[in-house]
Design a protein around this nucleic acid. Structure first.
Lengths: 338, 338
DNA sequence: TTGTACGCGTTATCAC
DNA sequence: GTGATAACGCGTACAA
């Protein structure tokens, strides 16, 4: 339970002034080489570690990056976060993490906590019921860059890293139609969220292009969970659909599983596609057609971008959005042998 | 880019002393009710937020919990972390996260970073090549509780939350034997890690009990990745095995997938079991027999325990280890209809 | 090249 | 009930 060593302790031991220690530790040129060595050596011997708070307080800034996501326990998010951590840690920053649990009110508190900790930058994926983003104003006004990813705010032009959800949804649906599907059910999530809204828009556009009727009955909105996939399977059978486009692989896989158990043949009776290219999409049988959504890369890119803005002190709000490519991965679940 | 508001700003505006503001803000009884209200009201109006560093510096302690894990991008870990975040955040703590990427040298650096940030407590799952834990000594000597989970140190009696890996491995293997398997391959990870070593020990004990020969050829050590599962499948076929026990579901699912594609019938030709009860184990076909390893609960439990120790200032090293129950979930991949 | 003195924002202690 | 002051550990302008 010994107290942490400070530069004062080192100063006393070496009969030097604390300021000299401070400078010597960071090899400031004004300190003689010999004393530098002496200082660094004894600092190590004494087990000195700089007090981050004192430094942050003094410098009025931190090397902490904050991150707020809707849910931590998802494979996709864990990929994104791993990507972020790698970049951020490499640059000497630390990571403060919190989840909103899909609730704006908690998101607001989280933003305040991030502000209290004076993060150098903030990476955010919005809760599904977040309608507007005024709770980020205060932190942005302090000059702290905020970068959104995946679930981004609609309507305004805040900097964000996204994919083209509309286009991806279009490509999936078009593909299913080309495989002969006439009645395609779309399973998706909360429509307040840009990602699900846009995927639905892409779905509609494809139907329209191929002159297939759009029927609200065919759009199933739920929480995209494993259970939701099972429930949806029964609706799909009742609706006599011959195609399914699910907004995530997790739910798609469980839906397909249930369809098979209900006697449907995939892809003969029903073609199906998911979204994300989660590991599970490769392992289910038949392999699931899906959209490659590279979470790890998105995390890396977001982190790099944020750090660049912090380092160069450029106003992040001047950046145009970055859109990642998301190729359609066609697999057995949607391919009908002619 | 306006500077953050401090208690001095509020003091000036209200013609009070900073110390009074400080007290008023936390509703100290020595401040009159009227001034309390005035202070809190104007603080809100001015958008005051306390500076965490100043507080931490002054109080010589933080409300930050550190967490170091081998890899962030795994479904299991994301579950654990979600559990931790919930508890920790609820208690008013923040979460500092880093990953060792399975490398001790980075783990050591991470521990130092955690120390630099004077975390109030540390939750750790060790890198696979961590042989000893002296790098935690310094932080423990400062009275900062360190609690290990999942991948815990061997040999010493540091406080930890684990499962009984040996017993779980035994139960799985015994079950496979009871289903008629005579030649069981065990696919597992780095043997420096307690979890994999113990699961192997359980596997051996079961073989011994049923008088089946133990053959090192039948133990495949790899990184338990998707690709490793595919490679292992081919070895399994060469080895003419009729049972497989894989140390995680991820790898087990891909292995089973490959076995099926190579013409093997599951469970008729080969019975197979995984570990973790990941979502994927429920969705593959046939459903995968596995061990229920409740990550979310483990995270919650670890966090609660750590916080209790911080709050009550009891030396965590006096605690006995906590062992979670891990029921065997028998599913179609291992059940032979007689 | 090194030392002195002050400030970063907060709180505990003592005085009034 | 409120104010002045010192201290938490560090960095830096200025002095020596």
């Amino acid at each position: 339970m010994n107290k942490p060593v400070t530069i004062y302790d080192i100063a006393k031991k070496l009969n030097l002034a604390p300021s000299t220690i401070s400078r010597g530790l960071k090899r400031h040129s004004s300190v003689s080489h010999r004393t530098q060595e002496r200082i660094i050596k004894t600092a190590e011997e004494m087990g000195y570690r700089a007090n981050t708070f004192a430094i942050n307080l003094r410098n009025r800034k931190t090397s902490t990056i904050g991150i707020i996501v809707p849910k931590l326990n998802s494979y996709f998010m864990s990929q994104v976060i791993a990507g972020i951590e790698g970049v951020v840690n490499n640059a000497g920053y630390t990571l403060l993490i919190s989840q909103s649990l899909e609730d704006v009110s908690k998101e607001i508190i989280n933003v305040q906590t991030m502000f209290d900790n004076r993060v150098a930058g903030l990476l955010v994926s919005l809760a599904e019921n977040t309608k507007e983003t005024s709770h980020f104003n205060r932190i942005q006004k302090q000059g702290i860059p905020v970068l959104f990813f995946d679930r981004t705010p609609m309507g305004n032009d805040l900097p964000a890293i996204t994919i083209n959800n509309e286009s991806a949804g279009y490509k999936v649906t078009k593909h299913l139609i080309e495989q002969g599907a006439k009645r395609i059910v779309h399973i998706t999530g909360n429509q307040l969220s840009n990602v699900y809204r846009e995927r639905l828009a892409g779905y509609r556009r494809a139907l329209q292009e191929f002159k297939l009727p759009f029927d609200t009955q065919n759009v199933l909105i739920n929480d995209l969970s494993e259970q939701a996939g099972i429930d949806a399977a029964h609706s799909i059978i009742k609706l006599m659909a011959d195609g399914v486009f699910v907004a995530n692989d997790h739910c798609a896989a469980s839906c397909m599983h249930e369809l098979k158990h209900s006697g449907k043949k995939i892809p003969e009776d029903i073609v199906i596609a998911g979204f994300n290219n989660d590991m599970i999409s490769r392992i289910v049988d038949p392999a699931l057609t899906t959209v490659d959504y590279p979470g790890f890369q998105m995390g890396e890119l977001a982190a790099k971008n944020l750090l660049a803005h912090i380092a160069e002190r450029i106003d992040i709000n001047l950046t145009s959005n970055i859109i990642l490519k998301t190729p359609l991965l066609i697999r057995a679940s949607s391919v009908r042998k002619i």
